[in-house]
Amino acid sequence: MTVLIAGCGDLGTEVGLRFARLGHAVVGLRREASVLPAEITGQSIDLSIKKPVIPPVTEFVVVAISAGSPTIEAYRAAYLDGLRNLLDALDDARVTPRRVLLVSSTAVYDINDGSRVDEQTPANPRPGTDSIVFDAERMLHSRIPTATVLRLAGIYGPGRERLINQVRAGAKLSAKSRHTNRIHRDDAAAAIVHLLLRPEQPALLYLGVDNASVPGNEVLTFLAAELGLPELALDTSAVPASTREGQRGGDKILSNRLLRDTDFTFTYPTYREGYRALLAGAGTRHP
């Protein structure tokens, strides 16, 4: 049995390594596959312009495509053209995987009032890149109605240390702190493997987020204390930097109840455990 990972970057590689440790053959698709670890058989391909070769015994497909830049053109090429080429290649090879999972984003919820969001909340993406991600979800379900979409919150982990670097550089607290939502990369990868391998058929949609949807100021204050830095000052400018940076994430409380109801267990249930491990140097950054 083979696991095919379309978009074998940092997250996809971690997923592939976890499947490989469980004894599965893993094929990873990425533009430059020579950088992949030996446990993953690489296929160098630009999915936005070419259809991949599909192993005939493919049982699971993970679509973890990412855009090369934050432009609309790059998102269309990755999420729409890339997904279409993958699905067309599956059809051409007459391969019907047992399960398919698409990694999406909670950015498809443009919600800014601090309300609770779960899988029943209608998506309302803003025009632009967020709408393209949602279009990819709809394309997948139109072609493979039983596929699973996992909408991940902000991923942090090895090599994803933006917030830590901001605190070290003297970040300030926001006068109006929005709720923030996140998931450690290792938990995101573990959730993907868990959903694909569990005996019960996965739902069509899950939110991938940890147990702590909290105001951003709380996380910044925690990191400053862990780093041994002085208490952070309040940003009194007209438009605080933290507010400008957080606008894409909106202000919402994401629920992971449906994911937890599958008996999934987080290694890093909140930002505290995750960032402490990150500060201690735990984990590996993948190419």
Rank of each mutant, 00 (worst) to 15 (best):
E245F: 01
E245R: 14
E245A: 10
E245T: 12
E245M: 05
E245C: 01
G246I: 03
G246K: 08
G246V: 08
G246Y: 05
Q247M: 13
Q247L: 13
Q247W: 11
R248M: 13
G249T: 10
G250Y: 10
G250K: 13
G250N: 12
D251M: 00
D251Q: 05
D251E: 09
D251F: 03
K252E: 12
K252N: 09
K252D: 14
K252Q: 13
I253G: 03
I253A: 08
I253R: 13
L254D: 14
L254C: 08
L254K: 09
S255V: 11
S255W: 07
S255H: 08
N256L: 03
N256H: 06
N256W: 05
R257S: 12
R257I: 13
R257N: 11
R257C: 07
R257V: 15
R257M: 10
L258Y: 08
L258H: 12
L258A: 15
L259A: 08
L259H: 10
L259R: 10
L259I: 11
L259T: 14
R260N: 10
R260D: 08
R260W: 02
R260T: 15
R260Y: 00
D261A: 13
D261T: 14
T262P: 07
T262H: 11
T262S: 04
D263G: 04
F264P: 04
F264K: 07
F264Y: 11
T265W: 04
T265I: 06
T265D: 12
F266Q: 06
F266M: 10
F266Y: 13
F266D: 05
F266I: 09
F266R: 08
F266P: 00
F266A: 05
T267H: 07
T267I: 07
T267E: 11
T267S: 05
Y268P: 05
Y268H: 08
P269L: 05
T270E: 04
T270N: 05
T270C: 03
T270K: 02
Y271I: 06
Y271W: 02
Y271S: 00
Y271E: 04
R272H: 05
R272I: 06
R272N: 05
R272Q: 12
E273D: 02
E273C: 01
E273A: 03
E273F: 04
E273W: 00
E273L: 03
G274H: 02
G274T: 01
G274S: 04
G274V: 01
Y275T: 12
Y275R: 03
Y275A: 02
R276T: 01
R276F: 02
A277F: 04
A277D: 15
A277V: 04
A277W: 00
A277L: 07
L278C: 06
L278K: 01
L279H: 03
L279F: 06
A280F: 00
A280M: 05
A280H: 01
G281A: 06
G281Q: 07
A282E: 15
A282M: 14
G283Y: 06
G283N: 06
G283E: 11
G283L: 06
T284W: 07
T284M: 11
T284C: 06
T284K: 15
R285W: 02
R285M: 14
R285Q: 14
R285F: 01
